[in-house]
Design a protein around this nucleic acid. Structure first.
Lengths: 211, 211
DNA sequence: GTCTGGTTCAACCAAATGGTTAACCGTTAC
DNA sequence: GTAACGGTTAACCATTTGGTTGAACCAGAC
């Protein structure tokens, strides 16, 4: 993944190297498990540089996390395209959202880890990442509510439905090692598996919502 | 949660105290982030006792993890009851599985963390936990395949369908802090939210599979 | 040339952490 | 009584880890 993370554009080369390395290591080892030395090694720089560019571990983590939340929210919004039918909207969203996670699994791991750890940073950064304009998830909720109103789909709770869509799009990445054990063809060709899975998810959810 | 974990019955009182405390701390802080002192404090014992009963951190973690995998698999199987219709089977499974996770969120966190960290321990312990008889997930796959064959539900890929069911049953626990931010009533009364969610999940999936 | 600013590095330090030890306590066996 | 034993404790040790420092490096400005 050559340019999966796209950190803030005002980062220098070294800062970007550090940022990318930190994201990978934090995502694998966890906020506390990650060692500064491991990040330095991954970034192929001296450990002192970490503290030169980012004050300390806490600062580095929060910087990485804050940007990850922004990226995650942005991808959610970008996956939501205006489409003539709800069917098309749903198909495009699943495709876009899953594709984003596939291109940047580390970001997803970071988000999930923060949730598992209690999510104390989530409140501030989630609100901050969605304050300009309506939050992307809310737009999807509204889209579903509208489709329900228009009779395009059954009458369902839009909030719960959005949560279900997100669940199915993300969980198989979260549990990827388990999936690869249980699901032989996933281990063989993950990319192909993801493609099949997108089809299956659209099919299941669309039928689940059809009148 | 007074007796959520039910470790091996041949554990002494102190061992159980340690085991329960370790599960909680490992689940919150992660395998590496967890501090032995924190586990000792949570178990209300001296730190040396951890090493007296379980050789070292690695041993303690693997013991806790192995038992958690077993418990997780067992709950999966126990949620699968013979029922006259597939509709009833699905309803009972969702109810049972969600209820298990609610009663022992720490176990779920451990499983997910191991997946996020790469799942190197999963292979061995998953196989071991499912070697006696057919694996519970496989039974559900067969059940869905049979229902599909019998025309009770649409023709779908049983493996993908099982993964979707599991995704929706687990993910809202995984992302609980985020859910509580986005979903006001979840924050207020989690128990009530879980009940509503079970209904929604059954409804969505059952319609998604209906012919 | 050399001064100056930001950048890079190896060596270093203090604190935290996993793990050990030797003494201690309470109960049981003789 | 006391010796032996499982269990418990505080103090201790060795290593790891986050973080610092001071010297070196390397442009470009003058």
């Amino acid at each position: 993944m050559p340019d999966a993370s796209t950190p803030r554009s005002d980062y220098s080369d070294t800062e970007r190297q550090i940022f990318d390395a930190a994201l990978q290591v934090f995502a694998r080892e966890g906020r506390h498990g990650a060692r500064m030395q491991a990040i330095a090694d991954a970034a192929d720089i001296n450990k002192a540089m970490l503290h030169y560019y980012f004050r300390d571990k806490k600062t580095l983590y929060e910087e990485v996390f804050a940007h990850t939340v922004r990226r995650f929210m942005a991808s959610f919004g970008e996956s939501l395209e205006e489409a003539p039918t709800f069917e098309e909207t749903l198909r495009v969203f699943i495709d876009g959202y899953v594709e984003f996670v596939r291109s940047d699994e580390a970001a997803m791991r970071l988000m999930v880890q923060e949730n598992l750890a209690g999510g104390s940073l989530l409140g501030k950064h989630l609100r901050e990442a969605t304050k300009s304009g309506e939050a992307p998830p809310q737009i999807l909720v509204d889209t579903i509510a509208a489709a329900s109103e228009a009779g395009e789909i059954r009458s369902v709770d839009p909030h719960h439905t959005v949560l279900s869509v997100i669940s199915t799009c993300l969980f198989f990445f979260v549990a990827r090692p388990t999936v690869e054990i249980m699901h032989p063809d996933a281990a063989g060709d993950w990319g192909a598996f993801v493609e099949v899975r997108k089809e299956h998810l659209f099919d299941l959810i669309y039928h689940g919502l059809a009148p």
